[in-house]
């Protein structure tokens, strides 16, 4: 027995068993209710868009790694998350070729060109969405629920008329126009609770994001509480705050940093919504704050204990 080789490693010798793969798997599970809701609301075309984006994302990462002779990384499941998030941010009626181009852009340009997982400076899905918004006109023409008679998304309607006519209940369950994954707030919150319970995300960022957006909107609509609630239940605020802004790589590490990041996102999103050219500002806001993340990390770094000169 004494002759058997013993393993020598530095401490610690036990591990929490967290892994990147498990984190990604949790995010995918958390997005399932939203994906199902999107398919119910927008029909089978939504499922096709999701399938295309996820497949293209995996395939582009695989091919890129193959081309540059890097070790395969698709088993960490992060490409699936990017593809899924991008799909949920697209209208169900988007031309398939555009969904393919967007997914390739997200993975190859935003993620792989910068060095792969953990090295990208901005969120791939968000950046691809913004790219598509600018590049393809079709992004502005949102899809509508299968049996709907509406002709504009709540935010587009608000940009025209200054008010949202969709009922709060319809906004909450997602029965209105928009992208595949952004409309059903109920499903988004359910997934968010799952991520909180699994400790994949902390509450700070989403709460600061949605809270700031609500308070700022409230001021802009003269303290009409229901109107402000309509605004934050519309558009991509919840999917952005819970799933996109919380991306580890592109958001601050500490709780204070996340509060600051969330508040910044909330303020920028509302400014763009109310004063900008586009009816929706969540993606732009997150993208802006992604770029500020390294600075926020420096400003909110923890102070070393006992670090003061004695």
């Amino acid at each position: 027995m004494n002759n058997s080789l013993l393993n020598i490693t530095a401490s610690p010798h036990i591990h929490s068993h967290h892994s990147t793969r498990n984190v990604m798997l949790d995010v995918i599970l958390a997005l399932l209710p939203t994906t199902v809701a999107g398919v119910i609301i927008f029909g089978m075309r939504a499922l096709l868009v999701v399938a295309v984006c996820v497949f293209t994302a995996i395939a582009s990462e695989f091919v890129f790694n193959l081309a540059v002779k890097k070790q395969q990384t698709i088993d960490d499941l992060s490409a699936i998350v990017t593809g899924l998030l991008l799909a949920l941010n697209l209208p169900a009626n988007i031309p398939i070729w555009q969904a393919v181009v967007g997914s390739v852009f997200a993975i190859v340009v935003v993620k792989c060109f910068f060095g792969g997982i953990g090295k990208n400076i901005v969120n791939p899905a968000i950046t691809a969405r913004v790219f598509m918004l600018i590049a393809f006109g079709s992004m502005a023409k949102a899809a509508f629920p299968v049996d709907s008679v509406a002709s504009a998304t709540p935010l587009a309607e608000a940009a025209e008329t200054g008010a949202i006519s969709t009922s709060l209940w319809d906004l909450f369950i997602g029965n209105h126009g928009g992208t595949i994954g952004e409309t059903c707030t109920l499903a988004l919150i359910l997934g968010g609770i799952y991520l909180l319970l699994r400790r994949v995300i902390q509450w700070h960022l989403p709460v600061a994001f949605i809270g700031t957006a609500y308070i700022f909107t409230l001021i802009l609509v003269d303290f009409d509480f229901v109107a402000a609630l309509s605004f934050i239940l519309s558009g991509g605020l919840f999917i952005g705050a819970i799933y996109m802004a919380t991306d580890y790589v592109t958001s601050p590490a500490t709780s204070w940093g996340q509060l600051l990041f969330g508040a910044g996102c909330g303020i920028f999103a509302v400014i763009i919504r109310h004063f900008g050219q586009y009816p929706e500002g969540v993606s732009f806001a997150i993208l802006l704050m992604n770029i500020l993340t390294p600075y926020i990390d420096i400003w909110t770094a923890r102070k070393p204990f006992g670090g003061k000169k004695a």
Binding site: T20, G118, Y248, A253, S255
Partner: peptide, 12 residues
Amino acid sequence: MTPCIRCGACTN
């Protein structure tokens, strides 16, 4: 070992 995903668990 896989690449750092900047989750912040270490510093937190």
